[in-house]
């Protein structure tokens, strides 16, 4: 009985994902995916930042605490960061964040870091679509369940 309900819930589950995209590469890739009219899952909402390095722990955790089911951080490929090395810092912070999330009881797969260049419109679409699917499988952010949202 309970299982059934959960399944029903899952069917209606509309994941909310925030994508923090760096201005120079991935945001441009998202534009390219758009102008190439690729079909992309509406679950993700884009927030533009200048560099992936701006996405610090607090921003990600606050996003989860505010109820997001998934967070994507995407920026330039290693070596391509417009500001030299920002994405290396992003990667380091990401590794740490994953640990923090686990310790908070949040599945660390809810956070994804991806390098997507400005020419990779198709890759952007792929990443967003597969990540949205993944979050759909994971179900709602447990924080939402806890607070009864």
């Amino acid at each position: 009985m309970q299982e059934k309900m959960e399944n029903q819930e899952l069917d209606q589950f509309k994941p909310k994902i925030v994508g923090f995209l760096c201005n120079w590469c991935t945001y441009a890739a998202a534009d390219l995916a758009g102008s190439s009219k690729m079909e992309i899952d509406p679950a993700l909402t884009v927030i533009r930042v200048m560099c992936s390095s701006r996405v610090d722990h607090n921003l990600v955790l606050t996003t989860f605490f505010s109820g997001a089911d998934g967070v994507l951080i995407a920026g330039c490929h290693p070596g391509d960061c417009h500001y030299g090395a920002g994405n290396y810092y992003a990667r380091r912070r990401y590794a740490l964040l994953k640990k923090v999330m686990e310790s908070l009881g949040l599945e660390s797969e809810r956070l994804k870091l991806s390098w997507i260049s400005a020419a990779e419109g198709n890759r952007y679409a792929e990443v967003v679509n597969s990540f949205s699917e993944k979050i759909r499988q994971l179900g709602p952010n447990p924080i939402n369940k806890m607070s009864g949202l």
């Binding site: 930042v49 200048m50 560099c51 701006r54 607090n58 921003l59 505010s66 500001y83 920002g86 810092y89």
Partner: peptide, 26 residues
Amino acid sequence: RGCGNCFGSCPSGALRTKHFTNTQLY
């Protein structure tokens, strides 16, 4: 240049990146 990298490195919340502040992004 406003990349915002320093922001994530500050343990004391002393940094603010104009036009990309915490409040704005939150």
